[in-house]
Amino acid sequence: MAKFKERLEWLERMKIVYENFKPNTWEEWALKLYVESAELATVAKQLNEMGFRLPSAIKAKPERKITTNDISNLLKVDPKSEIHECAITFFEKKIKTYWGEKY
């Protein structure tokens, strides 16, 4: 029961963090959108529709669209904020559900 209560308190705190979060960069938008949908492809599509682009390694094309790999890489680093912590927690839970605890 204590673990359930602790988890519920965490979710309530994350709800407040989410509601008060004002994203500015593509990374912040990616985190907020991932918390909403928990779908990498959906987040990448929404960010691209919002006009976000990343620098490209190809000289002829200086910018490129955001991919699911960009977002998953963002979710694999140490959290820098509470919204980042929330998104990482959701991402890790989804991986464990799909691949199992050993992943």
Rank of each mutant, 00 (worst) to 15 (best):
residue 1 M to A: 14
residue 1 M to V: 03
residue 1 M to S: 15
residue 2 A to D: 11
residue 2 A to K: 15
residue 3 K to G: 15
residue 4 F to V: 08
residue 5 K to H: 09
residue 5 K to W: 05
residue 7 R to G: 07
residue 7 R to K: 04
residue 9 E to F: 08
residue 10 W to G: 14
residue 10 W to M: 12
residue 11 L to Q: 11
residue 11 L to D: 10
residue 11 L to I: 05
residue 11 L to Y: 04
residue 12 E to A: 06
residue 13 R to N: 09
residue 13 R to A: 10
residue 14 M to E: 11
residue 14 M to L: 07
residue 15 K to Q: 13
residue 16 I to L: 08
residue 17 V to A: 14
residue 17 V to Q: 12
residue 18 Y to S: 06
residue 20 N to L: 10
residue 22 K to P: 05
residue 23 P to D: 11
residue 23 P to E: 12
residue 25 T to I: 05
residue 25 T to H: 09
residue 25 T to V: 02
residue 26 W to N: 00
residue 27 E to H: 08
residue 27 E to N: 08
residue 27 E to A: 12
residue 29 W to A: 09
residue 29 W to S: 06
residue 29 W to M: 03
residue 29 W to T: 08
residue 30 A to D: 02
residue 30 A to C: 00
residue 30 A to T: 07
residue 30 A to N: 07
residue 31 L to E: 01
residue 32 K to T: 10
residue 32 K to C: 03
residue 33 L to Y: 02
residue 33 L to V: 13
residue 34 Y to S: 06
residue 34 Y to T: 07
residue 35 V to E: 01
residue 35 V to D: 07
residue 36 E to G: 03
residue 36 E to Y: 07
residue 38 A to H: 06
residue 39 E to N: 00
residue 39 E to S: 04
residue 39 E to H: 00
residue 40 L to A: 01
residue 40 L to P: 02
residue 41 A to F: 04
residue 42 T to F: 01
residue 42 T to P: 03
residue 44 A to W: 01
residue 45 K to F: 08
residue 46 Q to M: 12
residue 47 L to Y: 05
residue 47 L to F: 05
residue 48 N to K: 11
residue 49 E to N: 14
residue 50 M to E: 13
residue 51 G to T: 14
residue 51 G to A: 00
residue 51 G to M: 05
residue 53 R to A: 03
residue 54 L to C: 03
residue 56 S to F: 11
residue 57 A to K: 15
residue 57 A to S: 12
residue 58 I to R: 07
residue 58 I to L: 00
residue 60 A to N: 07
residue 61 K to N: 11
residue 61 K to F: 09
residue 61 K to L: 06
residue 62 P to Y: 02
residue 62 P to E: 01
residue 63 E to G: 07
residue 63 E to M: 05
residue 63 E to W: 01
residue 63 E to P: 03
residue 65 K to N: 00
residue 65 K to D: 07
residue 66 I to T: 08
residue 67 T to M: 05
residue 68 T to M: 00
residue 68 T to W: 02
residue 68 T to V: 03
residue 69 N to M: 09
residue 70 D to H: 05
residue 71 I to V: 05
residue 72 S to M: 04
residue 72 S to Q: 07
residue 75 L to M: 07
residue 75 L to P: 06
residue 76 K to C: 08
residue 76 K to R: 02
residue 77 V to Y: 03
residue 78 D to G: 14
residue 79 P to M: 03
residue 80 K to C: 15
residue 82 E to S: 14
residue 83 I to Q: 04
residue 84 H to F: 13
residue 84 H to T: 14
residue 85 E to A: 15
residue 85 E to Y: 14
residue 86 C to Y: 15
residue 86 C to A: 12
residue 87 A to C: 04
residue 87 A to V: 07
residue 87 A to T: 06
residue 88 I to Y: 12
residue 88 I to L: 15
residue 89 T to C: 10
residue 90 F to I: 14
residue 91 F to R: 13
residue 92 E to N: 10
residue 92 E to R: 11
residue 92 E to M: 12
residue 92 E to H: 13
residue 93 K to M: 14
residue 94 K to A: 01
residue 94 K to P: 06
residue 94 K to L: 12
residue 95 I to G: 09
residue 97 T to L: 13
residue 100 G to C: 03
residue 101 E to F: 10
residue 101 E to S: 09
residue 102 K to R: 14
residue 102 K to W: 03
residue 103 Y to Q: 15
